[in-house]
Amino acid sequence: MPFEHNNLASLEISELNSVYNRCAAGLVMSLSNMSLLPLELLSSGVAPVVNDGPNNRMVSDNPFIEYVPVSPRAIARRLVEVVDREDAPERSVAMSESVSTIDWKDSGDQFVAAFERAMRG
C-alpha cells in the first residue's frame, strides 16, 4: 500500500470485537453475494453501511443495516449521517441487541434453504 496503514489480516477471531468497537460504521460492498460481515458489525454495535441490492437484502432484514445506493456520494453521505447521529451510543446498544439471539447455525440453515429453493426452481 502506498500509504501508512495497519495490516489487520492476521488477527485472531477473538480480537475482532476490539477492532470493530473502534468504529461507528463499517462499509460492506458486495455486488454478488452478501457477506455475513454486517451481522458481525451489528453484534459489536457498529452500523453496517451496505450497497443496496436484492442479493444483499435477502440475507437480512435487520432494520439497523444502512442500505445505500452504489454511488460514491450516497455512500459518503450515509457514512457521515451514521457517524454524526446524536443517538449513536443508544443505537449501538440496540444494534447489538438486535442480533443477540442469532447464531451462525441460523445463517447456515438460511443458506441451505435458499440454495434448495434455487435448485428446485
Score class of each variant (00 low, 15 high):
R120Q: 15
A114Y: 07
P72H: 01
P72A: 01
Q110V: 07
S71G: 06
H5C: 12
L11Y: 08
A24S: 14
N51R: 03
E15R: 13
S32L: 14
A74P: 08
V80W: 05
E66Q: 13
V70P: 00
N7A: 09
V82M: 05
R57T: 06
E4D: 13
L27D: 00
L31T: 12
S44E: 05
N6G: 10
P38L: 09
I75S: 05
A25N: 01
P38N: 06
M1A: 13
A113N: 13
L41N: 09
I102A: 02
V99R: 05
R91K: 12
F111E: 07
M29H: 12
S43D: 01
E90D: 11
F64H: 11
S100H: 07
A76S: 15
R78L: 06
A74S: 04
Y20Q: 06
R117S: 09
V70I: 14
F115D: 06
N6K: 15
G45R: 09
N33E: 11
P63Q: 12
S96C: 06
R120Y: 10
V82R: 03
I13T: 11
M29R: 13
G26N: 11
N33G: 07
K105F: 08
M1W: 03
I75A: 00
D87A: 03
K105M: 10
D109S: 02
V50A: 04
L31A: 10
S14L: 06
Y20L: 12
S32P: 05
P54S: 05
N21A: 15
